[in-house]
């Protein structure tokens, strides 16, 4: 029997049901230094965050999945291509948005995107047409005819995104796409990325230190520390509620309710509302309640009733990606020690 092909024919469309990135025991070494140590993960179609501290191995993984690094061991399949054997063909079907300032000097936004398309194998006419379309898509209108060197940081990020998209990439690698942007620019790029994933059905790998960005865009995350993958899974699973910990908001006799919770040793913390940022519960503090093993949630409602407070919100407390990241890195540091 003939063995199955290890890489994809570039002419064949990629089947979206397959995981878009599959790393198996992938190891990258630079001399004696091991940058990635037997990394294995399967990334389904969609958006995935790649998280790790500086020097954790994120860049090495990005280079590996772009087919730029020859691994010391293991295999990497990206968008159906063998990243080790078919790096060139692979890079025609993925897009990369670098973290650092990167533009083609002396070229307008339009010419930059056209050249990016042609370097990815688009015929000249097609590259030109798609460059106009994708620049319109990212919101660069008349500015597309100006030299990129004169663009604002936000506009440069948009051109980089347009260059990553122009050749119909199935998978985007985004390295700190909101780095240095003002809040408005950041929101704009995040909205674009969300649309690219959800409306245009592209996959992306987002490497970012801004964990809120990862939570805003991605459904999955991979945490890497000292070259090892220390956690992976859906964001939903990773941030799932801390056992028996609840976020409670009440109205009425809130002070008395808070006192009763404290007396019952249920209150862990009180998070004061930020002015103007919590319109629905602007006058309510968030009471962080932790129940003991075997304790029912009714006790909280009884305490509220006993002092005349009304509970308006009662929900399991979720961890943020920041919590997950810090907990995982600390735990891994303990293991290594």
């Amino acid at each position: 029997m003939q063995p199955p092909p290890t890489t994809r024919d570039p002419a064949e469309p990629f089947r979206e049901r397959e995981p878009i990135v599959v790393l198996e025991d992938f190891t990258v070494r630079y001399g004696k230094f091991t940058a990635v140590d037997r990394a294995s993960f399967k990334m389904p179609h969609g958006a995935c965050g790649l998280l790790g501290q500086n020097g954790a191995g994120k860049s090495s993984i990005l280079k590996a999945v772009l087919g730029l690094v020859r691994p010391a061991g293991g295999s990497a399949r990206v968008a159906g291509f063998d990243a080790v054997r078919d790096g060139l063909a692979l890079r025609d079907h993925v897009g990369y948005m670098p973290e650092k300032e990167a533009f083609l000097p002396g070229l307008s936004g339009l010419d930059s995107v056209i050249l990016a398309g042609r370097l990815s194998g688009l015929p000249k006419g097609v590259a030109k047409q798609r460059a106009h379309e994708v620049l319109w898509l990212v919101g660069l209108d008349e500015a597309r005819y100006r030299d990129v060197a004169g663009y604002s940081l936000g506009m440069k990020q948009k051109v980089k995104l347009a260059m990553a998209l122009v050749h119909d990439a199935q998978l985007l690698f985004l390295d700190e796409p909101t780095n240095g942007l003002d809040p408005e620019g950041r929101a704009e790029i995040l909205a674009l990325l969300r649309d690219v994933v959800r409306v245009k059905n592209k996959s992306l790998i987002l490497s970012s230190h801004i964990l809120a960005d990862v939570e805003a865009i991605c459904e999955h995350a991979v945490l890497i520390d000292h070259g090892r993958i220390v956690a992976q899974g859906s964001i939903d699973a990773l941030t799932r509620g801390v056992a028996r910990s609840y976020d409670v908001r009440a109205e009425g006799a809130v002070d008395a309710f808070e006192r009763r919770l404290r007396e019952a040793a249920l209150l862990v913390d009180v998070v004061a509302p930020v002015d103007g940022h919590d319109v629905l519960a602007s006058e309510r503090a968030s009471l962080q309640v932790q129940l003991a093993e075997g304790q029912g949630t009714e006790i909280v409602f009884e305490l509220a009733r006993s002092v005349g407070a009304n509970i308006r919100r009662f929900e399991p407390k979720r961890r943020t990606m920041s919590d997950v990241f810090l907990e995982t890195v600390r735990a891994n540091a303990g293991v290594r020690a």
């Binding site: 798609r130 379309e133 994708v134 898509l137 919101g139 050749h167 909205a191 674009l192």
Partner: peptide
């Protein structure tokens, strides 16, 4: 805010140049 319309970001299944 930029929004995505049906126009733009079309798929491309033509050949790639050498």
């Amino acid at each position: 805010m930029t929004t995505i319309h049906d126009f733009g970001l079309r798929g491309y299944d033509g050949g790639r140049v050498g």
